[in-house]
Simulated scan of single mutants.
Amino acid sequence: MSGQGREHRREERAGNEPSAGTPGAHVRRVLLTVHTGRHDIVELARTSAARLMAGGITVRLLAEEADDLAIDGAEVVPGDEKAACDAEIVMVFGGDGTFLRAAELARYTDAALMGVNLGRVGFLAETEPEAVEETLSAIERCLYRVEERLALQVDVLDRDGDVVGGTWALNEVSVEKAERSRVLDVVLAIDGRPLTSFGCDGVLCATPTGSTAYAFSAGGPVVWPDVEALLLVPSNAHALFARPLVTSPNSVLTVAVPPDGNTARVSADGRRVVEIPDGGRVDVRRAERPVRIARVHASTFGDRLVAKFGLPVRGFRDARHLGPGHELFTSRTVLSRDVVTGDGRVLDADADTHIDGDVGADVVAGEVGGAGTRDDG
């Protein structure tokens, strides 16, 4: 399984084990990957590194970031495929772009990715800046779990069926037209069987993790990360049947480009590009190696959806009383219409209950015993 359905938990070290500073003891390493273009991110990375090193953990930096971070006592390594070797965690300070860059470094190691979101949305990151101390404490005590997320393996073949290139992706693979002024003609096949053909701007093959990224913008479904599946999402297709598709995780998704059509290329996570030969095709399947993501907090994927998109969590009848922008204040649940307070307590709507709080408390308290009962239509 992938995602949250397949978790590994690091347990706290026993008190009689040697510390990291003891000769012969296992040295714990954390590789930092940082968006160094912002001063606040650099400062947070520095203070976090100091906290980790004070706890006996070795901090490792990428050579291209070391001068900007200027962290004394840190290891410095080249930013290549060996950067995360022997590291326990790759800790990411930045947005989803920085996280995807870090995923490249951890790809062929056992290191788990742990992100501190300092971008605009940050679906991949585990921690917001205000919870960094809690996250660092969990790393020190090995109190985190590791999710294995499904990744994609991509093979690019020429018209003779020979593999001429390849790559991988955590979020999505985009088969794109090379010339913006022309439509891209494609033929889609699932498990070697032709399905349909049309003209389009491109076709996305995505993972559940990537369902909230490019595929989401193209009209694809939101898929919980513990669901094992592959997604195929056409982009601006000229066809009546061009719906997003969800297939088995063991399927092979094929996007073929006719030899007399527009030239095309593959973009993986927006970071790696492979050209598609004329008349060639792209085969996308589940990768053998998943991506490991470390989690500390108990929030669910649904919680993150609500927080990231500011989703209303009340029925429209309740929302009208406080107006837009107050969806997360004291309210009623949509199903039971019980009152949910800001601290998560659930109060029976039929009880004679006084609700404390300065925003909308009088209105909601009045509804409990008045017009807003379970019997209203």
Rank of each mutant, 00 (worst) to 15 (best):
D350L: 13
A349G: 04
F216L: 11
G377F: 11
F329G: 06
S137V: 06
E133F: 01
A111N: 08
A63E: 15
A178L: 12
F123G: 06
S197E: 11
E65T: 09
R101K: 15
A213M: 05
G310V: 14
T109N: 07
I139P: 00
V186G: 01
G279L: 05
L184D: 01
A111R: 03
V173C: 05
T58V: 11
G325C: 12
G323M: 03
V183C: 03
H39R: 05
L62E: 04
A349M: 09
R320T: 07
D68W: 04
D40S: 02
V246L: 11
R271D: 10
K82D: 14
E367S: 15
M91N: 10
G279C: 02
D201Q: 08
G220T: 06
V346F: 02
E12F: 02
A83S: 09
S331K: 02
L136N: 09
H238P: 01
G55H: 04
T209V: 09
V346A: 00
A264H: 05
G302F: 15
F301L: 02
I57K: 05
D358S: 12
I276P: 12
A131M: 06
V359A: 06
D375G: 10
L240T: 08
D110L: 08
V222C: 08
L335Y: 02
A50Y: 01
A264P: 07
E104L: 13
T263D: 15
T47S: 08
K82M: 03
D303A: 11
N250V: 12
T373L: 07
A268D: 15
K177T: 09
E64P: 15
A213G: 09
R337L: 04
R60A: 05
V252P: 01
